[in-house]
Amino acid sequence: MARVRISENGSVPLPQAVRDAHGWKPGAELEIVDGGRGVVLQPVETEQEVPAKKKTLTIEEFLAMRPKYEGPPITDEMIEQAVLEEAKRRWNEKNSR
């Protein structure tokens, strides 16, 4: 966590690590939202930054995009057995501490 001090003219510098983590470049516009005991900074999206509306896929388009499984056949019973074994492993791991 970084600490900053409000300057005499009321400016608050944002640490470089915070700006980098959020991709805020010089000139970025931020909205200040009052949160009671603190404030939240939110970037203001300009027309250029608003992402284009995402296309809705049909089920056929979605199924065509998914990777094809090329391994051996797997049954529902095999999947259920694997899930149970993993649940047991996690239970034993959690309770052995």
Rank of each mutant, 00 (worst) to 15 (best):
T58R: 01
D34A: 11
I32L: 15
E86W: 07
E70Y: 00
P73H: 04
M78W: 10
P13H: 04
V40R: 08
K53F: 09
V44T: 04
D76L: 12
E85M: 07
P51F: 02
W24I: 07
E60R: 14
L84W: 04
I59G: 06
E47L: 13
R3T: 08
T75Q: 00
M1R: 15
G10S: 03
P15Y: 02
G36R: 07
V44G: 03
A52S: 03
E93N: 06
Q48N: 10
F62Y: 12
S11R: 14
G36T: 02
P67W: 02
A82M: 07
W24P: 08
L41D: 05
P73R: 12
E85W: 07
P13F: 09
P72R: 12
W91S: 06
E60M: 07
I79A: 10
P15E: 00
A2G: 01
E85Q: 12
S96T: 05
K94A: 15
I6E: 06
K55F: 00
V33Q: 14
D20Q: 15
R5W: 05
E45A: 11
I74V: 15
R89N: 08
L84D: 06
I79D: 00
S7P: 00
A82E: 09
S11T: 13
R90I: 09
I74T: 08
Q42Y: 01
V44E: 03
R90M: 11
A21Q: 14
K94F: 11
V39S: 07
R3Q: 06
N9Q: 13
V44W: 06
R90W: 08
R3L: 08
V39N: 03
T75F: 02
L84Q: 14
R5D: 01
E85N: 05
L14R: 00
L30C: 12
E70R: 13
S96P: 00
R90L: 15
P26G: 04
M65Q: 13
E80T: 13
D76R: 12
P43F: 05
S7M: 02
A17L: 05
P15K: 02
K54V: 13
D20R: 15
A17V: 13
A2E: 13
T56F: 07
V83E: 09
M65G: 03
P51W: 12
V33H: 03
L14I: 14
W91E: 15
R5G: 04
P26Y: 03
E47R: 15
E49K: 09
Q16D: 02
E31D: 10
E93Q: 04
I59T: 08
N92C: 01
A82W: 05
L63R: 14
S7L: 02
R66S: 01
S11D: 11
V40G: 01
G36K: 02
G38W: 05
M78T: 10
D20V: 09
Q81R: 15
N92M: 08
R97S: 07
V4A: 15
Q16W: 06
G23Q: 02
R19K: 10
R97K: 14
F62A: 09
E49F: 01
I6M: 14
R5M: 11
P51G: 04
N92F: 07
M65H: 04
Y69N: 01
E77H: 00
A21C: 03
H22Q: 15
E60G: 03
A17W: 08
N9Y: 11
S96M: 11
L30W: 05
M78G: 01
V18P: 00
R3S: 05
M65C: 06
A52M: 09
E61S: 05
P73A: 09
V39P: 00
R19N: 13
I32M: 05
